[in-house]
């Protein structure tokens, strides 16, 4: 997975040479496969293992680096202007399969002008080998690589009744995905549907019919949490492995849903204009209990032949918690 040195630097100060950064992170469990220089930026290739979905994005890797060097972490500031039109006046969300979708949040950005993204955004995406497409799509991809939460933008005017229904696919139901392939779905797959038909394969890929294009003026932005195993099964069954499915399969952060939604809405408004509806719709039919992980010093003392200096463990956790608190996730 590719990471840009300059991009990481927007969240944490890095004084070291890229090679040293790579070695430090390798020794901390993010093995580096390679490093290359591109347009004056160093691009790392880290092999992020399945147990670390939290590091499949720049802020996550910056958080590790901050903890290792005790440098402060600077997460992006996210704010949405109040006083927009209420989202529920223009759209609705119903989760009919709460066992497969624990949370579904949405906001609309009304009156956008979709076009080419500004250079800073194109540069960010291109530095890690991603293709810039258009301002709205680029904003959601940027947030995926920044915060790690997959988002999906719909052309809202293509959604019948502005409705979002999260349900199981009907046996044999068809959906043409963004890659232009018509897929035949099975009843164990989760889809996002509007009032009449499936418009996206949940957690895997959007549908071509509601794709954001030059003519799009109203955007419905999805930020959700899907159950990992069914996403993986659906992706496997259809032979579709995407950046979104890769993350949902390994477990996205249910508490990061709103932050990612707002961050993308903020960027879209900034680069494509329009006004953001507020408050967001946030359907959370199945609250996921916060997991408390007890960290005990005794087992690690027994595994290591000597005790680490007092405070090392808690110090490392506190460094990471500065970010964890921000995303409301308890470490």
């Amino acid at each position: 997975m590719k990471f840009s040195h300059q991009w990481l630097q927007s969240y944490v100060s890095i004084a070291e040479e890229p090679a040293r950064v790579g070695a430090r992170l390798t020794a901390a469990g993010l093995p580096m496969d390679g490093i290359e220089t591109r347009d004056g930026d160093a691009v790392y290739d880290f092999d992020i293992l399945t147990n670390r979905p939290d590091c499949m994005n720049h802020l996550g890797v910056a958080r590790e680096y901050a903890a290792l060097t005790e440098a402060p972490l600077r997460p992006p500031s996210v704010s949405i202007p109040a006083g927009g039109r209420p989202t529920r006046e223009v759209a609705s969300v119903a989760v009919e399969a709460p066992d497969l979708c624990a949370r579904y949040a949405a906001r609309c950005i009304l009156g956008v002008r979709v076009g080419r993204s500004p250079d800073w955004l194109r540069r960010r995406l291109e530095s890690i080998g991603q293709r810039a497409i258009n301002s709205v799509v680029d904003a959601t991809n940027f947030v995926l690589w920044e915060l790690g939460h997959p988002l999906h933008p719909f052309d809202m005017d293509r959604l019948v009744g502005g409705r979002i229904i999260v349900r199981r696919a009907r046996p044999g139901e068809r959906l043409t995905t963004l890659d232009g392939v018509e897929r035949t779905l099975t009843a164990d797959m989760l889809v996002i549907a509007d009032g009449t038909k499936a418009v996206a394969l949940a957690g895997v890929m959007g549908g071509a019919a509601s794709e954001i294009g030059a003519s799009t003026t109203n955007v419905l932005l999805e930020s959700a949490w899907f159950e990992p195993v069914p996403v993986r099964r659906a992706a496997r069954a259809l032979g579709l492995h995407t950046d979104a499915s890769h993350r949902f399969e390994r477990g996205a952060d249910p508490e990061g849903v709103l932050t990612a939604l707002d961050r993308a809405a903020q960027i879209i408004m900034e680069i494509a204009g329009g006004s953001v509806t507020t408050p967001a719709l946030d359907v959370f039919p199945r609250p996921l209990p916060k997991r408390v992980i007890a960290v005990r010093a005794a087992p690690s003392r027994r595994w290591a032949s000597r005790s680490p200096p007092a405070g090392t463990g808690s110090g490392a956790l506190e460094c990471r918690r500065s970010a964890a608190t921000w995303s409301a996730k308890q470490t």
Partner: peptide, 14 residues
């Protein structure tokens, strides 16, 4: 030794 992940060990390494 590099930190790594295998479900049956903790800490795990390659």
């Amino acid at each position: 030794l590099r930190p790594s992940y295998f479900p049956f060990v903790e800490p795990g390494a390659e």
